[in-house]
Design a protein around this nucleic acid. Structure first.
Length: 756
DNA sequence: TCTCACACCTTTGAAGTGG
DNA sequence: CCACTTCAAAGGTGTGAGA
């Protein structure tokens, strides 16, 4: 009890400061705090204990929360709360759960009033369901498809080395992350987000013109979801334009002068590999994010290695050639680069002339052409004027659809043709893709259509169809098997990348699962972002985002309980460099052999599959398992040792927020997990599907697509928030979950098969 | 490997101008 | 009023020196 009090005192002290800072952030960004705060207050005030804390009145917790206090207290590296970058600036950090292990250590189980029983923080969080119930909305089935814009540029980028510069003040992504959405319900509102997660747990170095693994990854930086400023908007609006995330910045600076990161900044570790992810959430209010189903899309070609300074000249040149802001460095033009080159040319010429004089009559052409051979590729006016439509088109600096007209401007720019590819490979690939693609801005729609068509040819639109997705996912994975890491010249590695790069739609599609006999695999560091939101979706405002939890070994057990939280532990030894080996790794997805580590993870997580922190799949959100796991797991690094890890765990459901319920009426948790069941044929009866990969298929997109409230009534397991009202229900639910969790070790399938 | 100042560039929005 | 132009400030770039 004492520890409990001590803990909260510390929390209060720290939070009081953090909140003020958060407010500042919000005010600076003109974000209206009440907009979000009221909702989260509901969350927080739901419980008397929480209500009593400052948290209830300060929903906007910057980047550090109670965990920080706790870890600081215990002398550990501060973990961070997940944070949401709100539209138009500002940030919303969602206090994560303290985690059962921590709670167990510092707090009494249920005596906290938070019901942090052995069920762990998930249950407790579920208990903190919002007061405000969500009205089920009439929804039209949607089938979101996402097409990556500037695909060619991305692929080229990927081939050349995948370096992305990050700076202390924040650097924009280049190539810009832009997508075009289709298949949305025109009238429904959607929130589009993106985040960047660690692709593996390795640190890299650029050696001998290659990216090589240089060791284990540094502790994960606090991550945040970046909500597109236009969110929420109707499907029609989203589909009418290119969704551009150019405002997102990458930084390696944890805090600014005020101690907090800009709301648009995503913190990355230099020399680490990352994978951007795109999320579509059907919700008409940001407040409903926590209850909504996330559809996550991953474009393998968009992964990159964060650097503070370019290591690979190819990338530098690529960016100079295609980024309007770097125009001054282009070989053709009036920029410095040109001047430098001209100087160089002059010197060369003078040298040539000197040589001529010395050697007497030498061939005339040498004097003129030699320099160009060395420097000139791009600086040659001839080259520049003849170039094909420039990839620059892809990097219109701003508003996508809005400023698509600007693309033309860029395209027509004097240097538009300057594909001063400094490398042969660049020449070949830089121009051709564009040529073939050469779409006008006004034709953006058809552009994506064409692209889609192309893709469909080979993949039957798998990238966009949740059902066919599986194959696409696997395929992509296969292609990714050979990452560019050690092969700067990745052309060979991704021979069919252009057509095969399909967004990995990670919807709650059972197909994925069914396809991938997901068993044991290391949990990735960063790919848990989806999980993060799963928590949210589960209305578990106090769940920690895995990637934000960096603790020392002393907290090993805690870490284990926190699951994917530990970056160092997460991968379970999966080598990211050698994806091939990954495939064969015991931890890899057997069902998705070629799928890269991070993608495998991603697929699972985004699909709503519960991935345990220990690398196995669970029928319910991993957070549940985390609690149980924590109890049984002693070492943080024991991901492999964990019983769940080695056990082939059948997948039960695919909704991120679905919960295995032995008690049909359980409400509390299901409240938080509105989506689940949707289709629930399988779920209805048992509450959980017996996990066969195949059976999982039945769950499919339906449940997922229906997202939050729509499915509420469809399954006995998933109840409408409205129905969750009584404490008794909550208690029952908790108990059922507890029973479930406690029985997992002995009978993992029980939850699914064991239906009341 | 990182940070910083720098020059160069684009973008943005306010102010001015003319119809 | 509206559309257009001009202009300055803000901000996005890579570079290179220095730590």
């Amino acid at each position: 009890m004492f520890s409990f009090l001590f803990f909260f005192v510390c929390c209060l002290l720290l939070l009081s400061a953090d909140f003020s800072d958060a407010r500042n952030t919000l005010s600076k960004s003109n974000q209206s705090p009440p907009f979000v705060s009221s909702s989260w207050m509901n969350f927080l005030m739901r419980d008397p204990v929480i209500q009593g804390s400052s948290m209830a009145y300060h929903p906007f917790i910057p980047h550090r929360g109670p965990e920080f206090a706790m870890s600081a207290m215990l002398g550990h590296q501060p973990p961070f709360f997940p944070a949401l970058a709100l539209p138009h600036g500002g940030s919303l950090s969602l206090p994560g759960a303290l985690g059962k292990p921590i709670m167990d250590q510092l707090m009494g189980a249920t005596e906290t009033g938070l019901h942090f029983s052995s069920l762990g923080h998930q249950a407790a969080a579920a208990h903190l369901r919002p007061l405000k119930t969500l009205e089920p909305e009439e929804e039209v089935e949607d089938d979101p498809k996402v097409h990556l814009e500037a695909k060619e540029l991305w692929e080229l980028f990927h081939k050349r080395g995948t370096e992305m510069v990050i700076t202390k003040s924040g650097r924009r992504m280049f190539p810009p992350f832009k997508v075009r959405c289709t298949g949305l319900d025109k009238k429904a509102k959607y929130i589009l987000l993106m985040d960047i997660v660690a692709a593996d747990d390795c640190r890299y170095k650029f050696h001998n013109s290659r990216w090589m693994v240089a060791g284990k990854a540094d502790p994960e930086m606090p991550k945040r979801m970046y909500i597109h400023p236009d969110s929420p908007a109707t499907g029609e609006q989203w589909m009418s334009k290119v969704v551009n995330f150019h405002k997102l910045k990458l930084t390696n600076n944890i805090s600014d002068k005020h101690g907090f990161v800009s709301s648009t900044n995503t913190i990355l570790n230099s020399m680490h590999k990352y994978q951007p992810r795109f999320h579509i959430v059907r919700a008409n209010d940001i407040l409903k994010l926590p209850y909504s189903t996330f559809r996550t899309y991953v474009f393998p070609e968009t992964d990159f290695i964060a650097v503070t300074a370019y290591q690979n000249d190819k990338i530098t040149q690529l960016k100079i050639d295609h980024n309007p802001f770097a125009k001054g460095f282009r070989d053709t033009g009036n920029g410095r680069r040109e001047k430098r080159k001209q100087l160089a040319l002059q010197s060369i010429r003078s040298y040539e002339e000197q040589q001529k004089k010395e050697n007497g009559a030498s061939d005339d052409s040498s004097g003129e052409q030699a320099p160009f051979k060395c420097f000139g590729q791009a600086s040659s006016p001839a080259v520049s004027t003849v170039g094909p439509p420039h990839l620059k088109d892809f990097c219109d600096s701003d508003e996508d659809s809005d400023d698509e007209s600007k693309d033309g401007q860029l395209k027509d720019g004097p240097d538009s043709s300057k594909i001063s590819t400094t490398t042969e490979d660049g020449k070949d690939h830089e121009a051709s893709p564009v040529k073939g693609h050469a779409f006008s801005n006004s034709d953006s729609t058809s552009r994506s259509r064409d692209s889609s068509a192309r893709t469909e040819k080979s993949q039957a639109d798998s990238r966009q169809s949740p059902i066919t997705l599986i194959s696409s996912t696997t395929r992509s994975g296969d292609e990714l098997k050979s990452p560019s890491l050690e092969q700067p010249k990745a052309d060979d590695c991704r021979p069919i990348s252009k057509d095969s790069f399909i967004p990995l739609s990670v919807q709650t599609e059972s197909a994925h699962i069914g396809h991938g006999h997901l068993h044991n695999f290391g949990f990735p560091t960063g790919l848990t972002g989806q999980q993060f939101f799963n928590h949210l979706g589960g209305a578990h405002p106090f769940l920690l985002h895995p990637s934000q939890f960096n603790m020392g070994g002393a907290f090993s057990n805690m870490a284990a309980g926190m699951g994917p939280l530990l970056a160092a532990v997460s991968t379970g030894g999966v080598s990211t460099m050698d994806t091939t080996s990954m495939a064969s790794s015991p931890q890899s997805l057997t069902g998705a052999p070629g799928l890269p580590f991070h993608l495998q993870q991603h697929v699972l997580a985004s699909q709503g599959l519960a991935m345990s922190p220990f690398g196995s799949l669970f029928p319910y959100p991993y957070t549940y398992m985390a609690a149980a796991a924590a109890a049984s797991s002693a070492a943080s690094s024991s991901v492999h040792r964990h019983p769940f890890l080695n056990a082939v765990r059948p997948r039960l459901r695919y909704s991120p927020y679905s919960l295995p319920m032995t008690v049909p009426d359980s409400t509390l948790l299901t409240t938080a997990l509105p989506t689940m069941v949707g289709s629930g044929v399988d779920l209805k009866g048992d509450g959980i599907v017996p996990a066969s990969p195949v059976s999982g298929v039945t769950l499919d997109s339906t449940s997922e697509v229906t997202s939050h409230s729509s499915t509420i009534s469809s399954g006995s397991l998933s109840l409408s928030p409205k129905t969750c009202t009584t404490e008794k229900d909550a208690a029952n639910e908790l108990q059922s979950i507890q029973r479930l969790v406690s029985g997992l070790d002995s009978n993992q399938d029980r939850p699914r098969s064991g239906s009341p």
